[in-house]
Amino acid sequence: MSTLVKIKIDEKEYEVPRGRYLLAICQENGIPIPTLCHHESVEPWGGCRLCVVEFRKKRWDSWWTELATACLYPAEDGLCVWTRSEKVMKARRTILDLLLARCPGSEVITKIAAEHGVYQTSFAKREGEDNCILCGLCTRVCDRVGARAIATALRGALKEVSTPFGEPPPDCLGCLSCAHVCPTHTIGHTEADGKRTVWGRTFELVRCSGCGAASVTREQVEYAVRTKNLSPEYFVKCDACKRRESAATFAGLLFDERKGGEGPVGPTGSGPSHE
């Protein structure tokens, strides 16, 4: 059991579990905090620095205030936090100004920047097409998924998200998780004729043996079967066809081969029972 501690956010008191990150606390309590590099499926990162808040605490013998990223700052007793102080807003505006210089074409960044009163960048704009802000969400999610197909390469101003040696990534599953979590929607991918292309590699989609519909790649299915020990049978048909099949199975079990008054159930099902 986690102990509860008292903290103050924007002069209002909250009782929260010790060690819980401030961003989560704010989100639960409807306190808006902008963030670009945070996703619940991965560990907090502290890269975009947009979620900075000002906090005051006692260290040794004196009080001091400092900026900290809410996504990584754990709640502790007596913590005082301001989420929209002048210092906070100034830092956020400069960060958005910098991001706008990096990705002048990004609608997402433009929108958040405008919300903070930054309508155009005061810095030198970066040349280039992509809207990558190097938040690292794609690479972190790819690690989490287990594929580890992409990573950041180089460092500093030259840093980029890359596949190994810039070639089509051999370990990619084509699951598009990276594209989904990308806050600026900059990971390009296409889907046509049962094929999906992402990171310069084309994947064959598994077509439903019944209707030909497709939603996942062969690599995804093979990965699931190999690492999660699931039956390959599960993946042969699409959701709609599987649903029709299970409806038919239940109907068959219930109405055509009715035995006594007992309600049979689905193959491995439990929970809502069919009577």
Binding site: C48, A91, L99, R102, A124, L134, G156, A157
Partner: peptide, 20 residues
């Protein structure tokens, strides 16, 4: 600018603009 790891925005983008 060269040695920033590039993880956080103020250091990666900020030092670059400072240099500019």
């Amino acid at each position: 600018v060269d040695e920033s790891c590039g993880k956080c925005v103020p250091c990666r983008e900020g030092t670059k603009q400072l240099l500019a």
